[in-house]
Simulated assay, not measured.
Amino acid sequence: MPTGVALRDARQQLFDAAARVLLRDGASELTSRSVTTEAGVAKGVLHRHFTDFDGFLTELVLDRISQVSAQSAELQHAAGSGTVADNLTNALIRGFDPVMVAIIVLVIARDGLRRRLREAGTSRLPLVGEATALVADYLRAEQHAGRIAQDADIGALAPTLIGAAHLRFTESSDVTADEVRKVVTTVLAGVVRE
């Protein structure tokens, strides 16, 4: 590998390479060598920017969590507009993109990574927990707006939506908006007041 070549954004380049390896080869094939080879950089580049490979993976997941946080703000802003089903359908499709699903598999597969993520303050099951909070916050905002029944159990509805959607996205890479909308409308049947 060439040395002395300045990288524009080494962290993002390595994150993008990890995403490609995860999608193509799966979590079991994600190694520091596979990431640096995919990124076209020397292995030392990863270790210059991260304490070790688990540190890299922790930062990769935390980067995804920050994207979930940004999406949460957008979804909160949508409360009271459009339809609840459409807002949630779009959020779930965007949230469970193939890279997100692959990263969730990675988190589940690596005990040390989950431990580091918990130490960093993430939910017990990183990404899944944050996605559940995103949905719960949105449902509460819609409940406040009167579009979700006041007696709706948000604490049960949010994880049910996330779990059902996650299963759908892990079963197929070609999940349609109509399929996701069906999950949303089924889970929320009887509580939407539009």
Rank of each mutant, 00 (worst) to 15 (best):
Pro2Phe: 13
Pro2Asn: 13
Pro2Trp: 11
Thr3Pro: 00
Thr3Gly: 13
Val5Arg: 15
Ala6Leu: 13
Gln13Lys: 09
Phe15Arg: 12
Asp16Ile: 04
Ala17Arg: 07
Ala18His: 14
Ala19Asn: 07
Arg20His: 03
Arg20Trp: 00
Leu22Met: 08
Arg24Cys: 00
Arg24Met: 01
Asp25Glu: 15
Ala27Val: 10
Ser28Phe: 05
Glu29Ser: 13
Glu29Tyr: 09
Leu30Lys: 15
Thr31Val: 14
Ser32Pro: 03
Val35Asn: 12
Val35Asp: 14
Gly40Arg: 10
Val41Gly: 02
Val41Leu: 03
Val41Asn: 04
Gly44Thr: 07
Gly44Asp: 12
Gly44Phe: 05
Gly44Tyr: 09
Val45Trp: 08
Arg48Ile: 00
His49Met: 02
His49Phe: 08
Thr51Pro: 00
Asp52Met: 09
Phe53Ser: 10
Asp54Phe: 11
Asp54Lys: 03
Asp54Tyr: 15
Phe56Val: 07
Leu57Tyr: 05
Thr58Lys: 13
Leu60Met: 10
Val61Gly: 03
Leu62Met: 07
Arg64Ile: 01
Ile65Met: 03
Ser66Met: 04
Ser66Cys: 00
Gln71His: 09
Ser72Ala: 10
Leu75Asp: 04
Ala78Arg: 14
Ala79Asn: 06
Ala79Phe: 07
Ala79Ser: 15
Ala79His: 07
Ser81Gly: 01
Gly82Cys: 02
Gly82Ser: 04
Thr83Arg: 09
Thr83Tyr: 03
Val84Lys: 05
Val84Cys: 02
Ala85Ser: 14
Asp86Pro: 00
Asp86Lys: 10
Asp86Ile: 01
Asp86Phe: 01
Ala91His: 06
Gly95Thr: 11
Phe96Trp: 04
Pro98Ala: 13
Met100Thr: 15
Val101Thr: 15
Ala102His: 08
Ile104Thr: 12
Leu106Ala: 10
Val107Cys: 11
Val107Tyr: 06
Ala109Arg: 15
Asp111Met: 12
Gly112Val: 12
Gly112Met: 12
Arg114Trp: 02
Arg114Thr: 10
Arg115Ile: 13
Arg116Lys: 11
Arg116Ile: 03
Arg118Phe: 01
Glu119Asn: 13
Glu119Val: 09
Ala120Ser: 08
Ala120Trp: 02
Gly121Glu: 08
Thr122His: 06
Leu125His: 07
Pro126Met: 10
Pro126Ile: 12
Pro126Glu: 09
Glu130Cys: 01
Glu130Asn: 04
Glu130Val: 03
Ala131Cys: 00
Ala131Val: 07
Thr132Gln: 08
Leu134Ile: 01
Tyr138Glu: 03
Tyr138Pro: 00
Tyr138His: 11
Arg140Trp: 02
His144Gly: 01
His144Glu: 12
Ala145His: 11
Gly146Arg: 11
Arg147Val: 04
Asp151Cys: 00
Ile154Gln: 08
Gly155Trp: 10
Gly155Arg: 09
Leu157Met: 07
Ala158Arg: 05
Pro159Asn: 04
Thr160Asn: 02
Gly163Arg: 11
Arg168Asp: 00
Phe169Trp: 10
Thr170Ile: 08
Ser172Leu: 00
Asp174Ile: 00
Asp174Met: 02
Asp174Lys: 05
Ala177Ile: 03
Glu179Arg: 14
Val180Ile: 15
Lys182Asp: 11
Lys182Asn: 06
Thr185Leu: 05
Val187Gln: 06
Val187Tyr: 04
Val191Phe: 09
Val192Trp: 09
